[in-house]
Computed example of a mutant assay.
Amino acid sequence: MPASAFQIPVYFDYLATFAWALSGAVVALRKRQDIVGVFVLALLTSMGGSILRDGVFLQRTPPVLTDPVYLPLILTATLLVALLRRRIAHLPVVNRLVGTIDAFGTPAFAVVGMQLALGAAIPLPGVVLVGAVSGVGGGVLRDMIVREVPFILQPGQFSALIVLLACAVFLGLTLAAGLAAEVAAWTTIGVAFVARMLTIRFDWRTRPLLDAD
């Protein structure tokens, strides 16, 4: 990645990873999985997007294998949920924490994925796909593992549309408007965060294309 490219602040990266690992571990706990299942779901939720992005699309080594902090961080989240399982399983604060981190983290990781895809000379539709997978791939893997319809495929609060909005804004600002990647990235994160907060505040939702009989 070029020196001028946007990079997620390292402490926010670790905080987002820890929060997403917590959310995956709590889902595993509610599904009555053992400690191995809790760890696997925490790992997939927090790092699944980058694993798919790098391992499948870009043929790079995923950061979970190169940064020595990620696995201990995910293990810590796993052990914390295991130790506090009777208290933490239904705490609303966990969902609120993950939701706030997600509103910032999803567009940020989508931007990083798009930059990597642009650097690999992938055509623009593929750049958007890589960005979307980078942002939401972990949640999709989590839902598939526990045999649920992935959240981005269900009617809900515009989650998939906001990711696509973030991708479109970043590409428009960098490729069409010529803004520096850092400026474009923070603008994109701000737009996506405001859009996400508005959907929550006013409960804007998509609807099924076909109503139930």
Rank of each mutant, 00 (worst) to 15 (best):
P125M: 08
V130I: 14
A103E: 05
M114Q: 10
A108Y: 14
M114W: 10
P125R: 04
I122V: 15
V133D: 01
V112R: 11
P123D: 03
M114P: 13
I122A: 02
L118C: 11
G131M: 07
G131L: 10
G135V: 03
V130D: 01
G119L: 11
S134G: 11
L118I: 14
S134C: 09
P123A: 08
P107D: 11
A120V: 09
I101F: 15
L116G: 00
T106K: 14
V111I: 15
L124R: 12
A103C: 12
F104Y: 14
L124M: 14
T100H: 02
V112I: 14
Q115I: 14
V130T: 03
G135S: 06
I101N: 12
F109L: 10
F109V: 08
G126K: 04
V133P: 00
A117C: 00
T106D: 03
A120W: 01
A121L: 07
T100W: 07
V130W: 03
G126Y: 03
A120P: 01
L118D: 06
G126N: 06
A117L: 03
M114K: 06
V128I: 15
P107R: 13
L124H: 04
A120K: 07
L116Y: 08
F104E: 04
D102H: 08
I122E: 01
M114F: 06
A121I: 00
A110K: 12
P125I: 07
G119P: 00
L116H: 12
L116W: 12
I101Y: 08
A132L: 13
A103F: 13
T100Y: 07
L124G: 00
V127D: 03
T106H: 06
L129G: 03
S134P: 04
A121W: 02
F104I: 14
D102N: 12
A120I: 10
S134A: 15
G105M: 12
F109I: 08
I122Y: 01
A121C: 00
G131H: 11
A117T: 09
G131S: 09
A132M: 13
A103W: 02
G119Q: 15
G126A: 07
G126W: 02
G105R: 08
V112C: 12
L124N: 05
V128N: 00
G105D: 09
A121P: 00
L116D: 06
A117Q: 02
L129M: 13
G119D: 14
T100Q: 07
A117E: 01
V112W: 06
A132N: 01
Q115F: 08
I101V: 15
T106Q: 13
G126I: 03
L116E: 13
G119I: 02
T100L: 14
G119E: 15
P107E: 04
V128P: 00
Q115R: 07
T100C: 13
G119T: 10
V133T: 10
G105E: 06
M114T: 04
V133R: 01
D102Y: 09
S134Y: 00
S134N: 06
A120G: 00
I101E: 02
P107S: 11
T106N: 13
G105Y: 11
V112S: 06
V111Q: 07
L118G: 05
P107A: 11
I122N: 01
T100V: 15
V112L: 14
A121N: 14
S134L: 02
V128W: 01
V111L: 05
V133N: 01
V111E: 08
P107V: 09
V128A: 08
T106I: 15
